[in-house]
Nucleic acid binder design. Structure first.
Lengths: 330, 330
DNA sequence: CTGAAAGCGCTTACAG
DNA sequence: CTGAAAGCGCTTACAG
């Protein structure tokens, strides 16, 4: 009953119009070259029966589905903005997208192969890594593009894990006269956390700055608060590089517990550019990530692959620093 | 080439195993009752050819696809959390979901009907309204559930637009001794903004409080700042009900511009329970919305409809007030 | 326990 | 300009 459906088929349309189902098919595919009279009879029949083609049957014959899949891991990291970008790019190229969320690289790889062979999609964009065994398949039928921006748990890797903006933040702060830095790191399982931490260390070295320490945080606001509590009173930094905006908010809270003013006594930087960060006090200096652009970029690569075109390339950076009130000269 | 694919079919598996394709089909559907020897031959052949069933062909025959669609409007409101809930509920019931994002009620309705008739899905959950004309179809083949929680642009309506938590906030504040209230409303196109505004007015009336005014905001942090700037110095409120967390952050910023302490001089409440709100200073009293639960609820209704079961019902409220530092006795 | 036949709703050559 | 035939890869009765 739920799957019954007495939809009219091409044959019934043909019968009503007094033509062969052939002709109806031709009409549907807009092949042209139909006698105006035939055309009209078919049109009328279609309207009368409220006919709509069965896309499954069509797909079976044409081996084309007009759909692309995006495989993402179980939503650790909210992929909404990336999906928005990918979805827009797909639509512009005439494709619908389908989102499949699977946790675990093993399961994800299996699901991807299954999907690839199912004949249900023409291409697959995976925002998380899959096992190398799946690559072997890529050439066979459907195009598969695997993003190098996220690891198995949707943690940033590759360009996104690049800590470069940390160097940009620290360089500017050093130019303003900051010498004593402190870093509240994100959870170490994350390549992005490691990247920022590494860049922090490198930049300390390169610019000859003082490293007050690195706090082993976990992306939480609590870790930001705690990081400041742990600081010895006779060894305070003047600038804190926090792993993200929430941590930065925690750092500012911790600073105020200790009577430290931000940015008077302490400059604090975040990461993610959350909307609210612009209004909290002090407003947060942060790093913006172009997630929509990321989704769009992956999708454009996929569409190119499906069509057998050359992979497009991008010049634009995906991150940019936004300076606000939480940073100032010491 | 991209859509070629030389995947083995059931027939080739049968040939290699020395059985009829029938038997292979039976094996695949786990019908049982196969001779161990036959079973093993089929198994080997499948492994050898790396056979995987063509789901399009299967769907065509069975008229079942094992997929459910979620139709959402172009992403005004990030539906990630709802999708996570819906996706989890679907997976628990053995369905895959597919997300289709379409803006505009007219286009969305058309796409929904198309999808319904395409034979590509067994059910459709629309998180945004569709034209009544589509209801006529619901009974025919695929189940269609239309959420009553959002309007055409993914704005909250129904239970979600209910301003009840505003009454809860105001009642408690009044118990604490607050008398002079101010409301920074969200954009009036939103039923939720209107609901909160209405409840604000009703509660002022019911509890006999003083209404300092209602500022026509637009959900932005800027509108929160501006709302406080506009206040006459000899008519200041002691409590501000802001339309959401970002607005509340703006209100607090505006208050501090005028030398008002929160919560010392002014209590401020938000809405949405953004993570960062717990760490900013003062931490934000807010209203939490169970978006995952909302997605789950819709999906459970859909699955029940697909299976011809009775629609489940829920008792739990979707919103709850969280008290934090931004509110205190006057 | 297994096979031969028919058909799901379309499109793709091939005739005429 | 239009139709008769075949087939996409599977499953569903029906035999045996």
């Amino acid at each position: 009953m739920p799957t019954a459906g007495k939809r009219a088929t091409i044959v019934e349309v043909a019968r009503l119009a007094g033509v062969s189902h052939q002709t109806v098919s031709r009409y549907l595919r807009f092949e042209g070259g139909l006698k105006p009279d035939t055309m009209e009879r078919v049109e009328t029949a279609i309207r009368q029966l409220d006919y709509r083609p069965n896309l499954v049957a069509r797909s079976m014959r044409t081996r084309r589905t007009g759909r692309l899949a995006i495989v993402i891991p179980a939503m650790a990291f909210s992929p909404a903005r990336m999906l928005a970008g990918a979805s827009a790019a797909a639509a512009e190229s005439g494709y619908m997208i389908e989102v499949v969320s699977v946790g675990g690289i093993q399961e994800r790889t299996e699901r991807l192969l299954e999907l690839a062979d199912s004949g249900q999609v023409e291409g697959i964009l995976s925002l998380a890594p899959v096992l190398p065994s799946s690559e072997r398949r890529a050439a066979e039928g459907v195009a598969v593009v695997v993003s190098t921006d996220f690891d198995d748990s949707m943690r940033s890797i590759g360009e996104l894990a690049d800590g470069a903006p940390v160097a940009e933040l620290m360089t500017r702060l050093a130019e303003w006269g900051h010498r004593r830095f402190y870093h509240v790191a994100g959870a170490p399982e994350f390549a992005s956390a490691r990247g920022r931490r590494q860049t922090y260390a490198d930049t300390i070295e390169r610019l000859g700055l003082d490293n007050v320490g690195v706090f082993d945080g976990d992306w939480s606001g609590e870790s930001g608060v705690e990081a400041i509590r742990r600081l010895s009173p006779d060894n305070l930094p003047t600038a804190v590089i926090a792993a993200n905006d929430v941590v930065a908010a925690g750092v500012i809270r911790g600073a105020s517990e200790r009577g430290l003013d931000v940015p008077g006594d302490l400059s604090v930087t975040g990461w993610d550019n959350q909307t609210i960060g612009q209004f909290i006090q002090p407003s947060l200096t942060t790093v913006d990530i172009d997630l929509e652009g990321l989704g769009r970029r992956g999708m454009c690569r996929l569409v190119a692959a499906v069509r057998g075109e050359a992979a497009p390339s991008w010049a634009a950076a995906m991150t940019s620093v936004i300076w606000r009130e939480s940073t100032a000269a010491p």
